[in-house]
């Protein structure tokens, strides 16, 4: 593969690929032994420090693709490369923020964050100290002693974010992380995410079914077709300036134009997706 050496001086980090999915196909064996193809021939290249949102209709296999990048699922065909090296097993360079609750319910918020370091061999004392700093960064400085069930949905997401980011992963995989939250909280969490991301740029794959959220957050929006055998059907650059405010950027003209353009291609797939799932 020849690499064209026209790297922009404004974004020096966009030179090496953080995640490369090459012609990935994912299939599952169903209970009746038939083969179900979730994703077909998906190729995607994400640069280091790049924020990419994957948008698609419900049940199109977006999360499947993310799990492939995480190494939780092995593709049936095609290859996954992380930082140029072929991925075999779990992706150790990635942090994963799950859609549903993934915190350890028997640990306090502080311990939940600290565990991210402790598993790597950091002493408990140091881990807890740094966890306290991270909790403060996500705005939960005084909630360290609370157990997950004592926190609101948004607060739990904040803890989850700190738990993942404290390990300083080079790749951040997010599976509709703000899906269960109300609109207001989603906006606040989106801004928090952008703040943290701009402080230490990581390659981000952000799965969502909300096109507005995708455009507001990301550098690039990738559209997937309705499943089964979902494919990548579109790839748009988001030329909006940073730093952004989620609420304000939605009022800009550039945002609207891009939204309309992407929506035109997504619309047909959304309808198809609903017809197939009977939703």
């Amino acid at each position: 593969m020849s690499h064209v050496a026209t790297v922009s001086t404004e974004q020096p980090s966009v030179s090496a690929s953080a995640v490369t999915l090459a012609d990935v196909t994912v299939a599952f064996r169903l209970a009746d032994r038939s083969l179900f193809t979730a994703v077909q021939h998906a190729s995607l290249d994400i640069a280091a420090g790049e924020f990419v949102a994957i948008v698609g209709p419900t049940g199109c296999g977006k999360s499947t693709l993310l799990n492939v990048a995480a190494g939780l699922i092995a593709p049936a065909a095609g290859t996954v490369a992380i930082g140029g090296h072929r991925l075999d097993g779990l992706n150790r360079q990635a942090g994963y923020l799950f859609q549903s609750d993934a915190l350890f319910p028997w640990k306090t918020a502080l311990d939940n964050v600290a565990i991210g370091l402790e598993v790597g061999g950091v002493s408990s004392e140091e881990a807890r100290g740094r966890a306290a700093q991270w909790l403060a960064r996500v705005g939960l400085g005084s909630f360290g002693g609370r157990y997950p069930h004592m926190l609101s949905g948004g607060q739990r997401k904040r803890v989850g974010l700190a738990q993942v980011l404290i390990r300083d992963p080079q790749i951040l995989l997010m599976d509709e992380p703000f899906g269960p939250l109300d609109a207001q909280t989603r906006q606040i969490m989106g801004n928090l995410l952008l703040d943290l991301w701009s402080a230490a740029r990581k390659a981000v794959i952000f799965i969502t079914h909300d096109l507005e959220e995708a455009i507001a957050l990301s550098d690039r929006v990738v559209i997937m077709s309705a499943g089964p055998a979902a494919r990548i059907i579109g790839d748009w650059k988001v030329p909006l300036p940073r730093p952004r405010d989620i609420a304000e950027i939605k009022l800009e003209r550039g945002f609207h134009e891009l939204h309309r353009e992407i929506w035109q291609s997504l619309k047909a797939e959304v309808i198809k997706g609903y017809e197939q799932t009977g939703g």
């Binding site: 995480a70 939780l72 779990l90 992706n91 150790r92 990635a94 942090g95 994963y96 799950f98 549903s100 609750d101 993934a102 915190l103 350890f104 319910p105 640990k107 565990i115 991210g116 598993v119 790597g120 738990q163 993942v164 390990r167």
Partner: peptide, 23 residues
């Protein structure tokens, strides 16, 4: 054990022994 919590523990890099202890 919730499969999500388990997947999270794995992604955080827990070894089999750590899974035992923490999950």
């Amino acid at each position: 054990v919730s499969p999500t919590v388990l997947a999270n523990a794995r992604m955080l890099g827990m070894s089999e022994r750590q899974l035992m202890r923490h999950v």
